[in-house]
Design a protein around this nucleic acid. Structure first.
Length: 453
DNA sequence: TAGAGGTTGGA
DNA sequence: CCAACCTCT
């Protein structure tokens, strides 16, 4: 009986990208099984399954052993799949980025443990991607109407949390499952920031959430007041936990609900961010190719820079030496911690797209390589938003001014000084571009695309 | 269907 | 004000 390889992996990777796994598949030692969170990549061409039950059925019917599962927590699905297939060995490969590696180890530990009352739900979103539709059955393309329906549906269910799921006991016919971690090399050119990582796992997620629920001033009650203040750092930091399925969005919504709706500007704004997360997952579910291609095909003709000079500009952006303090602070925070404040993500994204005229995919790739919460749907559609290629009909003339943003959102420079140690020295680089000139250039290029002169 | 509205801006 | 397009009901 072939072993089952469970890849908890970046959705745009293939088996061939992991030499050790590819060799095992080639030798017939491994039945490749793709466990993918949460939205599907079109290019996989594999059968779809939404729930554990469907997954097991689909696996029986899958002729080549390829299966793509839209699912939350591998600690639930892996033992069940192993039991179903009689696997003796389960391979867990790395996800991209620093957090994935830790996550793999944690998953392996939890699956090894004897006390295996596992918690999990079939979908890592408040509502299943693809389930919110217009009257005529079409998916929504704009956030606000989507979120109205989303809130209505969830309120109708009192923001309830799906029941706990007890997984299989992790043995196969009484034999324990052996665990092996494929030492999957990161694909070439994917640097490891080697940074300090936030605590992983369900307990850590719940602890942080409890803390954020009751915190005074910097908690969820004041989320709307301080969410754009990167120095205050008053956001929840739950994104890695949500991304990796350590906590479920319904848990958060249920706790915010308190029996009579979600009250208060902070909690409501926070909940609507969860709606954004569901929205982008839905968009990617409906249009899987938009992971790396423009949602708006008109933008395909946009003039972008990709030559050697552009690559050098890109490298300066990656390294955080653009000469724009708020941009450099964000990029350095990303490298140092695997995380960046959301307001700053928007600023650095706008800078890459509108000041440097580079493809948004370059920035999205760099983010996914380094973010501990890097999620294909939220990340890449966030980038499409910044680039004006996505769902939001953002006016093309909306160009972030990095200097103005610095003044507005980090007026005392606390955030910048925290991450840019040479900020107050003469070693700090001059601005790499003239923002006013590049803004005009970006507007000119957008006008070419829109066909006006 | 006509009319309202659209995350995050800049000057 | 920019400039003026989709989306949605």
């Amino acid at each position: 009986m072939a072993a089952v390889s469970v890849m908890w992996f970046r959705r745009d990777l293939r088996v061939g990208d992991h030499p050790a796994l590819a060799a095992a598949v080639e030798a017939g030692d491994v039945l490749p099984l793709f466990v993918v969170d949460p939205v599907l990549m079109e290019r996989s061409g594999a059968p779809r399954a939404a729930h554990l039950h469907d997954c097991l059925l689909a696996l029986r019917e899958s002729t080549d052993g390829h299966l793509v599962v839209r699912h939350g927590d591998p600690t639930e699905i892996v033992p069940a799949l192993a039991a179903e297939t009689g696997a003796e060995t389960v391979f867990v490969t790395r996800d991209h980025g620093p957090y994935g590696r830790r996550r793999d180890a944690e998953v392996a530990d939890r699956l090894r443990s004897d006390d295996r009352k596992l918690r999990g739900v079939g979908c890592n979103y408040a509502l299943e991607p693809g389930s919110v539709r217009k009257r005529d059955g079409d998916p929504y393309a704009v956030f606000t109407p989507f979120s109205r329906v989303w809130f209505d549906v969830l309120a109708g269910e009192s923001y309830s949390v799906p029941g706990d799921v007890t997984a299989a006991d992790g043995t196969c016919d009484g034999r324990p499952i052996a665990w092996t971690t494929v030492d999957g090399d990161d694909p070439p050119g994917r640097p490891d920031p080697g940074c300090e990582l936030p605590p992983a796992g369900e307990a850590a997620a719940l602890e942080r959430w409890r803390e954020y629920l009751v915190a005074d001033g910097r908690g969820v009650r004041d989320y709307d007041q301080h969410r754009d203040d990167p120095a205050a750092d008053a956001t929840s930091h739950l994104s890695p936990h949500l991304k990796w399925g350590a906590i479920h969005p319904r848990r958060l919504l249920s706790d915010l609900h308190a029996g009579n709706g979600i009250r208060g500007d902070g909690p409501r704004t926070f909940a609507s961010e969860l709606a954004w997360r569901d929205f982008y997952a839905d968009v990617l579910f409906q249009r899987p190719a938009t992971a790396w291609s423009n949602l708006n095909p008109k933008m395909d003709t946009m003039r972008l820079d990709r030559d050697d000079a552009a690559r050098e500009l890109f490298q300066q952006w990656c390294d955080g030496r653009t000469g724009f303090p708020i941009v450099d602070a964000g990029m350095r925070q990303l490298l140092a911690t695997g995380w960046m404040h959301n307001r700053v993500r928007m600023i650095v994204a706008s800078f890459l797209v509108k000041d440097l005229h580079l493809p948004w995919q370059w920035g999205a790739r760099h983010f996914l390589d380094h973010l501990v919460d890097g999620d294909l749907a939220s990340n890449n559609h966030g980038w499409q938003w910044a680039a004006g290629t996505g769902t939001d009909a953002a006016p093309y003339f909306r160009v972030f001014n990095p200097t103005r943003q610095f003044e507005r959102y980090d007026p005392d420079g606390d955030y910048v000084r925290r991450w840019v140690d040479d900020f107050d020295t003469d070693r700090y680089p001059d601005p790499m571009v003239d923002h006013a000139a590049e803004r005009d250039e970006a507007l000119a290029r957008y006008k070419e695309v829109s066909g006006r002169s």
